[in-house]
Structure formats: structure tokens, C-alpha cells
Nucleic acid binder design. Structure first.
Lengths: 348, 348
DNA sequence: ATGAAAGCGCTAACAG
DNA sequence: CTGTTAGCGCTTTCAT
């Protein structure tokens, strides 16, 4: 028989029970706030806990209950995701709420190859799906409560919360059209992301609705990086003929780069070129001309996802109520756009 | 006696043992790659595992072994930390290496009030210490292997890896001095962070070594945000008398803002004002004038910390070998600085 | 209201 | 080389 080396390290529920002069069951009841414990005993236990600095072993708890309050946040290890404002904001939102709800937040940076160890995980939040659909499908198959954020997954029975990127882009481009612009360029993000693809889609729809011809040469594809944004901006501005008088850029950080390039090339913002970004990144506020942009409720998306997942985890009946939500964006009008002027038309 | 509802959900080691026709111990041995298992049995077990899609319960494992491969990453929930390039880069580095070493990464965004639940945590990485020293001390007292990064903790018996911010700042300012500048300003980061404080210290030392008078009015304190950088830049550039001809800025994102402001105010970079930043943030590469900056090995710091912690965790003998390392920086000379010119002196 | 005892799934002595 | 068995620390019946 092994000797219990209790002296060595950890104090367990036994020690507390002994000190308080009750059974471990009673201690357990106090820990779990079960009300059927006599006041007197409860106090004795609480004091023993305090005195011994007892913290229950989460492993034992989880083994015994079969429940887990671990939330895994799966972030695709994809370069572009780290260029953006997006990732950090999401981590912050999710992290803060998990802390508040006493959920353990496990971070997984994965690529398409890694397969998640799902054992012992209470729920999963997928921060976008980029090349890791298989992981999502695994999770779903195993019955672990899952959520996808920043990607509206239509063809899978899974709850998701995403930004209405099409609508956001539509609003942005409509605004430009309302200002009189007809030659409107678009600098896309990385089109393997749904967000970028949908923003592009919104751009196209806005043109179509207003009977403006879509021109392939007005579209510049990037990977969201400032470097590619610069290249795109140079090409767009230097177009020999019929250069755009306005541009919708898929992210604020790229839009800022476009502004910089425009100034370097001697163009006035918004005089010569109107710009709308996307994100409402605080950086857009500074600079000589503040950036008109589409605000997306990232923090709200993050928080809602945790709340929803928490519900899914704690729901007893496994009634799989899939809920798909699209969060609205908001056009934030600042200084980087201007109505089409007569000069624009003359230059034509 | 309770009925084992094995049918319901999880397959356990028992099911595998039964299917393979061996004892659970043998299964356990195969799982843990203990070599004393006959080839034939090993294969049978492996097949059973595959067939049943068995994944061992980490909770049971940890409860049984008393070991945990969970690494907690504690990030102070401090606004400034999120302005910066820093946080994401660190998360990325640590996340990637944890994934590779099969460590579970638990993310904790804490403030000074939250007390960590240390139970069941194998090791802790503190990403800077800002108002949460008590948590560090708790962790140390409890004997959990801990590491601090981005903060050189001198007065505590704890391993740490930090950037040599003093040296980095010293190099930056020396470079400016070598170019002939004498009126050198400094825009600090948030001085409650050690990084910002040390950069400030490096600035002061460089002046002193070169017998240049330290002027309080050349120093502008910020919280690392672009907004405050803008304010600082405006004040610095508009100084009525003896405005600095060069400035050392505590972060690249602020340095970029300073550049923008300078241009708005009609100053040439580097003609009228030389600028050195800190971080080697890729954003500094774009823009009309690429930014001279101090590169800090963030990813390396992140990775080293995980490796070191992993060592601490797996070390049998609890010989507490505290190791404090300071990682060197590197001055990256690009285009934002210029020797002091005759014109500068004339304007005086 | 309380406690005894049977698990939760796994590991590690120990005996064979 | 393999199996038996006693825990790991906690929860949860089931009696009392």
C-alpha cells in the first residue's frame, strides 16, 4: 500500500474535513453551495478552507462530474489574422468574459493539420474558419458545444455569430455613390476569408443596384497587409485613364496606408480621392484627415459568443438549438470623403 | 451500486482493454509509450484505440499523476498593453510553441484584484507585471514553476526573460548623437511599464555619457497611444525655442504618428527632424520614409520562455535554478534620421 | 442535515 | 512482459 504523502504538497478535501470535524461530503456540499448544510457547520468548513488555503482540484472535480468549464478558443494560425486589429480585440473580449464567468480559456493556434484533442473540453469557439473546417466538423460530430464567430456558416448545423459584412460594404459604397461618385475602386482583403469575400460582394451589389458597371481593373486584391495595400494604392492612383475618384478599402489599416500613399503622390484626401475603410480601428482617428469607416462590433461579437456558448454548455437537455446571428455594422462618417466635384469631372 | 452508463458517452480505457483482450494496465502502457509491451499486444491495443476513437481523459490522467501540462499565460488587463504590437506577437510566439510542445495554454487576462486559481496549473508565464505583483508572489509561494517575460525582476527569486531596453535606448540615442544631434527629445511610453521606464533611463544615460544636458521640457510622457503621441509630437515640434532636431520615440506606432504630425506641420523627415522608434513593427517599413528603429526579439523571448518553463515543469529535482536573461536589441538603420546640418544650426 | 461508500478514468507499485 | 489493485480528490447516491 502506498503511503499518502499528504504532508508534502497539497491539501485536499480530507484535510478540510478533519479540521472542521465533519465528513468530506459536508465539505463538498459547502464548496458547491448546497443549502442543506447547517449554518454552524458551514461556517466551520469555511474557516477551515480559509485557514488551509484550500482550493479544490479541478481535475478531481471534472473527473467526478464529467463536466468541464474549459472553453477552447481556436484561432487559425494564418498570417493575415495577425495583421489585423481583429485578433487582439477578439481575444480581449473573449478573455474578459471568460474571466467573469469563471470559464477557463484554452488558446489553440492551429493549422489545417493539427487535430484538436477534444477530450475534457466543455465548449469550443472557432475564431473564423480558415482551412480548418475539418476541425469544426470533428467537434460537431463529437457533440461538444461549439460556436463559430466572424464567419457565417450556412451549410453546417452550428451556431455562429458574424458581422454583416455585405451590408456594411453596401452601406459604405452606397454612401460613396450618394456623394456622386461613379468611379469607385475597391481594395480587398484576403479573399480566402469570408469577411473579405463578403465585403467584396457588398461592393459589387452596391454597384449593380445603382447600375454602375463593375470594372475588374478597379479591384485590387491583397492579403490585408500594409505592404500590399501600398502597392494596390499606387496602382489605383496612377491609373492612366479614368482613375477612381473614391475607394472602398477592406480594412482601416490598409485605408490608412492608402491615405499615406495618396499624399506622397500629391493627391489630396478627400479632395482628389475619397476613402472609406472598414473596422473602426482607433488609429483612423488620428492623422490629418480622420477616416470614414464601417464600425463592426467586435467586442460584442466576442462577448455574445461566450455567453451563448456558456448557455450551450450548461444546457441539460441536449436540444441542439442552432442559432445564427448577423451583427449589424454602422457607417461612421468622418472626414475622408467628399462629394464628387466639378473638377473631378473635368479631369476625366 | 451505480450502473456504469458506458454506453452513453465516453469510451474509456476499459473498453479498449476489453476489445483488445488485455488489461487496462497494458493499455495504459501503450498510451504512455512504455516499451515493455509485446509487439503483438501493442498492435492490438493500437487498433482498438483507433477503432473506438479512444482519447484518454486528461483529467483522470492528471488526477492520477498529479502532473499537469497546463501553462497559464497571465496578461495584465491593462489598456496600454493592447495598443501595442507587443501583446499579439507574444501570444503568437507562446501559442505556437505550446502547440508544438503539447502544452495546454490557458489565457488569463487579469487585473490586480483577481486571484488566480493555481490548482491544476503546471506552470505560469507572466507577460509583464503591471499591478499584479501579488499574483506573482502567490505563484512563487505555492511553488508552481513561474516565469516573467518582458520585465526584469531583480528583487524576486524568479526566472525572467526581458529585453535590454536600456541598452536599446542607449544605442538609439547614441546613434542620434553620433549624427551630430544635441537637442534630442524623447516621447516615452507608459512609465508604469518597465519597458518604457528603462527606455527613458537609456535615453538619460546616453545624454549623460555625452555630456549633454538633460532637459525636462524635451521629455513627453504618454500612455503609448497614438492619440497622446500626436499631442506630444505637436508640442515638441512647435516648441518656440530650441526645438529638438531629433527625437527618440518609445514605440514605432507612436513614431509613425510623430512622422505624420511632422509632415502635417510642414516639417521634413529626416531633413528637419530625425526620428528613431522602438519595436521594429513592420508598419514602419511602409510610408514615404522608412523608420529607423530598435528591433526587439519578441518572438524569441516568447519561445525561450516556453522552453525554459517546460524545463522547469519537467525537472524532477526541484532545484530551483533561477535564470534571469536580458535579450539584446538591434538598431535597424533606415531612412528617418540624418546628420545634423548647417541649416539646423542656423535656425537655432 | 449528515455520513459511508461507490464510482469517475487513469497510473504506478507490486507480484507473478 | 502482464495483470491486480490501491489510490489520485472529488461528487453523488443512499441510508441514517
Amino acid at each position: 500500500m502506498r503511503v499518502k504523502k499528504n504532508s508534502s504538497g497539497n491539501i485536499s478535501i480530507n484535510d478540510v474535513a478533519r479540521l472542521a470535524g465533519v465528513s468530506i461530503t459536508t465539505v463538498s456540499r459547502v464548496i458547491n453551495k448546497i443549502l442543506t448544510v447547517k449554518e454552524k457547520n458551514r461556517i466551520r468548513v469555511q474557516e477551515a478552507v480559509k485557514q488551509l488555503k484550500f482550493q479544490p482540484s479541478i481535475f478531481a472535480q471534472r473527473l467526478a462530474t464529467g463536466k468541464s468549464n474549459v472553453v477552447a478558443l481556436v484561432i487559425p494560425r494564418y498570417e493575415g489574422i495577425f495583421y489585423s486589429y481583429y485578433a487582439l480585440e477578439l481575444i480581449r473580449g473573449i478573455g474578459t468574459l471568460c474571466e467573469a464567468l469563471k470559464l477557463d480559456l484554452l488558446l489553440h493556434l492551429t493549422d489545417s493539420r493539427t487535430s484538436l484533442n477534444l477530450k475534457g473540453i466543455g465548449g469550443i469557439i472557432f475564431a473564423d474558419i480558415i482551412g480548418n473546417r475539418a476541425q469544426l466538423e470533428d467537434a460537431l460530430a463529437s457533440g461538444i458545444p461549439s460556436m463559430v464567430i466572424n464567419n457565417y456558416v450556412e451549410d453546417l448545423e452550428v451556431s455562429c455569430i458574424a458581422i454583416d459584412n455585405i451590408r456594411g460594404a453596401l452601406d459604405a459604397v452606397n454612401y460613396l455613390i450618394d456623394l456622386g461618385h461613379r468611379k469607385i475602386g475597391h481594395i480587398t482583403g484576403d479573399l480566402i476569408t469570408q469577411a473579405a469575400a463578403w465585403r467584396f460582394e457588398g461592393y459589387k451589389r452596391a454597384l449593380k443596384k445603382n447600375n454602375i458597371e463593375f470594372r475588374q481593373d478597379y479591384v485590387f486584391k491583397t492579403d490585408y497587409s500594409r505592404g500590399q495595400a501600398r502597392l494596390a494604392a499606387e496602382k489605383l492612383i496612377k491609373m492612366p485613364q479614368a482613375a477612381p475618384t473614391a475607394v472602398f478599402v477592406a480594412s482601416d489599416s490598409m485605408a490608412l496606408e492608402v491615405m499615406t500613399v495618396a499624399r506622397e503622390l500629391g493627391r489630396k484626401i478627400p479632395g482628389d480621392l475619397s476613402i472609406v475603410g472598414f473596422d473602426d480601428n482607433p488609429s483612423g482617428l488620428y492623422g490629418p484627415v480622420s477616416l470614414t469607416t464601417v464600425r463592426q462590433p467586435l467586442i460584442r461579437m466576442a462577448e455574445e459568443s461566450v455567453k451563448e456558448l456558456n448557455l450551450l454548455i450548461s444546457r441539460k437537455d441536449k436540444g441542439i438549438k442552432v442559432k445564427k446571428v448577423l451583427l449589424p455594422t454602422e457607417l461612421v462618417i468622418r472626414e475622408s470623403c467628399q462629394p464628387l466635384t466639378f473638377e473631378h469631372i473635368q479631369k476625366q
